[in-house]
C-alpha cells in the first residue's frame, strides 16, 4: 500500500486559497476578510479548515495561546455587533463567519473533538479508515448488559443477596472500565505525539504517508472503543447510583 503516490493530497493544502469574487462588487478576492475595493466583509472560504482558520499548523498538540488569540481577534473582526448598522448582506456574512469561528474554536479546544476533526479532514487521503470492530469488547459489553438487565429487573427487592452481589459486581466493573477509559485516553495522546512528529519531520515520501495513515487509523480505533466504553460506563452509572 505504500507504493501508492499520494502527493496530490499532501500538496493541495499548501496551495493558496482558490480565487473567488466579492459578493458585493464582483472584484477578485483571495481569502481576504475584506474586499480590497469595496471593503465589504467576505464570507470565510468553504475550503478553509479550522486549523488554517485559527492560524495553527495541522498538529494535535496545539498552542492554546495562538488558538485563543486568533479566536478573539477574529471574533472582533466578524462579531455581529459591529455590523448592526451595515446592510443585510454584510450582517449575514458576519453572522455566518461568527458561527464558523465558534465551531472552529470549540472543535480545536477539545482534544477529543480535535482528533476526530483531524481524522475527518485527513480521511480523504487514507484508504480503509474504518477500523476493525473490537469483537472482544462487544462480548464484554453484551455480558455486562445482561447483568445490568438482571439488576434492573430486581427493581424492588435489590436488598436481596443477589441484588447486593450484582450491585457490587457492577460497581467493580465500572471501576475497571473507568480505568480503561483513562488508558485509552493516554494511548490517544500518545498517538498525538506520533502524528505531530510525522507532520513536522516529513517530506511527503510514500513511507511517511503510510505511517501517517496508520496513526490515523489507530486513533480512529481508540476513539470508537472509547465511545463503546463510555456508553456502557454511563449505563452502569445510571443503574447503580
Amino acid at each position: 500500500m505504500s507504493t501508492q503516490p499520494t502527493s496530490t493530497d499532501h500538496t493541495s493544502r499548501e496551495l493558496p486559497m482558490a480565487r473567488s469574487m466579492c459578493w458585493h462588487c464582483q472584484s477578485d478576492v483571495c481569502g481576504e476578510y475584506f474586499c480590497g475595493r469595496c471593503v465589504k466583509v467576505q464570507p470565510l472560504s468553504k475550503e478553509l479548515d479550522y486549523f488554517t482558520c485559527m492560524n495553527l499548523p495541522r498538529l494535535l498538540s496545539i498552542d492554546e495561546k495562538t488558538l485563543e488569540d486568533t479566536f478573539y481577534s477574529l471574533s472582533r473582526t466578524f462579531h455581529p455587533d459591529f455590523y448592526a448598522t451595515k446592510d443585510e448582506g454584510e450582517k449575514c456574512v458576519s453572522l455566518g463567519n461568527t458561527a464558523i469561528l465558534n465551531t472552529a474554536y470549540r472543535t480545536l479546544k477539545n482534544p477529543i473533538q480535535r482528533a476526530e476533526y483531524l481524522i475527518r479532514l485527513e480521511a480523504g487521503s487514507v484508504k480503509d479508515i474504518r477500523s476493525t470492530p473490537p469483537a472482544d469488547l462487544f462480548e464484554e459489553i453484551l455480558e455486562l448488559q445482561e447483568d445490568l438487565d438482571e439488576f434492573r429487573a430486581l427493581a424492588g427487592p435489590r436488598d436481596s443477596d443477589r441484588g447486593r452481589e450484582l450491585r457490587s459486581k457492577l460497581q467493580n466493573d465500572r471501576a475497571t472500565l473507568e480505568t480503561r477509559q483513562e488508558q485509552l485516553k493516554a494511548r490517544l495522546f500518545g498517538k498525538f505525539q506520533e502524528w505531530d512528529a510525522l507532520q513536522i519531520s516529513s517530506e511527503a515520501t510514500a513511507e511517511t504517508q503510510s505511517q501517517k495513515a496508520a496513526v490515523l487509523k489507530a486513533m480512529q480505533e481508540i476513539l470508537s472503543n472509547r465511545t463503546y466504553v463510555r456508553n456502557i460506563v454511563n449505563d452502569l452509572i445510571a443503574a447503580t447510583s
Binding site: 477500523s131 470492530p133 473490537p134 469483537a135 462487544f138 462480548e139 459489553i141 453484551l142 448488559q145 480512529q220 476513539l223 470508537s224 465511545t227 463503546y228 463510555r230 456508553n231
Partner: peptide, 13 residues
C-alpha cells in the same frame, strides 16, 4: 452476528 456503530457506540447482537 455482533456489530457496533463507532459513531454512537450502539452494540447489536
Amino acid at each position: 452476528g455482533i456489530v457496533g456503530a463507532p459513531e454512537c457506540g450502539d452494540v447489536m447482537k
